[in-house]
Design a protein around this nucleic acid. Structure first.
Lengths: 228, 228
DNA sequence: CGGTATCTTGATTGGTATCAACTTAAGTGG
DNA sequence: CCACTTAAGTTGATACCAATCAAGATACCG
């Protein structure tokens, strides 16, 4: 089993503020898991009892609305931690996490993280900073959801995905999402998202390669996202 | 000037985790302010350089969307802290705060709070918990905004306001909000909110006393909020 | 008492959801 | 490898919800 203190992935999250000794302790009690595409890491209402550090792959973090529709609130990737929120509030998870690609993750039990939160101020301050940043993003998303049209949100989502996941050699956005996934991000019916995607394609603002999407005219998308 | 260590208000927020010595230090550098209804405490893009502790009154925390519409993301009252997020991320504020009633607030400068965040783990852990809770609320709000109809959101908002601010002697919800404010909470046009309120009144689910709203049939509101 | 902000209702338009039919792609097992 | 099954994607038609525009009513304030 690999050692946390040698793990490159931790450079991208708060764990980098732990010292060598703390990392070795965590190494001793962490467990590694491989999750297949589509499978859950955890689900709403589940008690997580720790945090997951994503070593490889992408996962979608979502929540079921009372209407029975799924809303994706975040997409997380290599280096990110998930499950911190529930751990800190000591509550069951209010969110679900499903593997969007095959994944490799490490599970670190609750007590170990709490120990470090209490004793290592640099670590807990960084966790706090990350949380503050998540909060800012969420607040922005609330405003977008409440005030922007589906078309604006789609344009913005495409830009965000491009920003976050980059593009692969063929120029397409480097994440595999179904039309339904995209709808669940922008919070709309699948058919609506499909229809808007096809008009964007007609206007040569985007194009499809297989099911992947390539952005042809970024400026145009930005204009649409801002409301023409 | 009043002393923080004797202030009752701090019982409701993270400041209660500071010890007597820390509170006396903060007392020495805090400043008290009175804000009139409608006036800003701070605005989007402003550098806040500290946190505000609300001693009395209610304030609305809002954000302007690119469409030029205002979205209220939170209503905070006596005992709450505002401005923590920007302080922790060391960024200008992404939100504005306007007094919804006459207010009395205390301003505590950035450096003092940071000192305590670094040295008092109980304090910083509680700040972290509060932030985690805000994040959960925001995530829930995203889902509601994305998936629920305006009618559902209105019903839910009325229930939330009733829950949070209670009712005054005449039975009405104990917060003064204009129709426009309500619209800015649920993210809709003012006329739409007005229309829906009037149908709720016709159905004897709510009633108006002046501009204040009284909930007559809570169960019915809950059914509407859940989608009939 | 006029003037202004807020509230209310009506008519119209447009954006999205929904329902239904069909096409294409992706397995799966004989 | 083909026939079958199922999932995913696409397009059209329709209905409904909510935004917008317009006009009037009511409350508020100097």
């Amino acid at each position: 089993m690999s050692k946390c203190d040698q793990c490159i992935v931790k450079q991208f999250n708060s764990l980098k503020f732990l010292n060598r000794e703390e990392l070795i302790r965590i190494s001793g009690c962490k467990t590694s898991k491989y999750i297949k595409k589509g499978e859950p890491i955890f689900e709403e209402g589940e008690r997580i009892n720790g945090v997951y550090c994503i070593k490889d792959g992408i996962c979608k973090v979502s929540k079921m609305s009372e209407n029975g529709k799924n809303q994706i609130v975040n997409l997380v990737q290599k280096g990110d931690l998930i499950g911190e929120r529930s751990l800190i509030s000591d509550e069951v998870s209010n969110l679900s996490a499903y593997a969007q690609s095959d994944m490799e993750i490490c599970f670190i039990p609750r007590e170990e993280i709490l120990k470090d939160l209490e004793k290592n101020p640099a670590f807990s301050l960084d966790v706090l900073k990350k949380m503050a940043n998540s909060l800012k993003n969420s607040e922005n998303l609330i405003v977008d959801m409440a005030q922007k049209s589906v078309k604006q949100r789609l344009a913005e989502t495409l830009l965000n995905l491009h920003e976050k996941f980059g593009k692969s050699e063929d120029g397409t956005i480097n994440i595999q999402l179904s039309r339904e996934d995209i709808s669940n991000i922008i919070g709309t019916a699948t058919e609506s998202a499909i229809r808007l995607l096809s008009t964007l394609k007609k206007d040569k603002i985007i194009t499809f390669k297989g099911k992947d999407i390539e952005i042809l005219d970024k400026k145009a998308l930005e204009r649409i996202a801002a409301g023409f």
